[in-house]
Write a protein that binds this DNA or RNA. Structure first.
Length: 255
DNA sequence: ATGACTCACGATGTGAGA
């Protein structure tokens, strides 16, 4: 089973790239972030024509998530149950016996901002909900744009980024708390090249200079950990014309 | 250097992203 996550930064702009990518990477399930589309504008026909099922949950201008899968997703959940949220950030469903949770974690903007406080509350609510989900779904994958660089090796310039958004101790503690639920960072189950990033700023020729962050992640539950065969970041779409600033991350699990 | 780019909204700029 192959799963992937990709922050497309506007599905209206990136739909052709998504369809190309799916043709080249026929994954069993893919979660998208930052679709930036209201539900009435979601391109269900195009994705269906590509041979995929899709669940979607969006809003105007910002956020928006989707769960694309070869077989239909069941028990679909939108946003974190019990956590009142005006922002469309989570979509979950069971695909081929695996609980797939896709998330667009809040950015947080700056550690002293209201948006950071919202991020902290959101992360706590996610953790509390996932603790429950894991009780009923031993095979669970949490993936998406976490907007957290878990360690200094996930940051191109950790000195400059120290204490900055995505790198604060508070955010990293929340990432560790997710691992504390029994989840594992699939990417770190394998030897990986140094300076592996999933996001590069549009500015400053950052991609060309490979100045980025690893903030898109795939976490697998203990029941899946031993079955993970590979986890890679696909930099190819970042080389497209008009790319998303994020690259897809893929995992292969032998079920 | 409160920058740089890209996106949505819907404007001739502004906010947000990360």
């Amino acid at each position: 089973m192959k799963l992937a996550t990709w922050n497309v930064n506007s599905l209206a702009v990136r739909l052709p790239q998504l369809l190309d990518w799916l043709a080249a990477n026929p994954v069993d399930a893919l979660v998208l972030q930052e679709t930036k589309l209201t539900d009435d504008k979601f391109p269900t026909m195009e994705i269906g024509a590509a041979g995929y099922q899709v669940q979607w949950f969006g809003q105007k201008t910002y956020n928006g998530v989707a769960l694309i899968s070869k077989t239909p997703a069941s028990a679909v959940v939108k946003n974190i149950p019990g956590f009142a949220d005006e922002q469309a950030r989570v979509i979950a469903g069971t695909v081929a016996g695996v609980r797939v949770v896709g998330g667009y974690f809040p950015n947080g903007q700056a550690p002293d901002s209201d948006k950071f406080q919202y991020k902290m509350g959101w992360l706590q609510a996610l953790q509390d909900w996932l603790r429950q989900e894991l009780q009923t779904h031993d095979k669970l994958v949490l993936m998406g744009d976490f907007n957290i660089a878990p360690e200094d090796r996930d940051v191109y310039d950790p000195v400059a980024w120290a204490g900055q958004i995505h790198c604060t101790p508070e955010e990293r503690a929340h990432f560790q708390a997710l691992l504390g639920l029994g989840l594992s960072d699939a990417f770190r189950l394998f030897e990986q090249p140094a300076k592996s990033w999933s996001w590069w700023d549009y500015r400053n020729l950052a991609f060309r200079k490979n100045q980025g962050l690893r903030i898109d992640h795939i976490l697998v539950s203990a029941a899946l950990k031993g079955a993970v065969k590979s986890c890679v970041i696909d930099k190819l779409p970042r080389k497209n014309e008009r790319p998303s600033d994020h690259a897809p991350v893929l995992v292969e699990i032998e079920l």
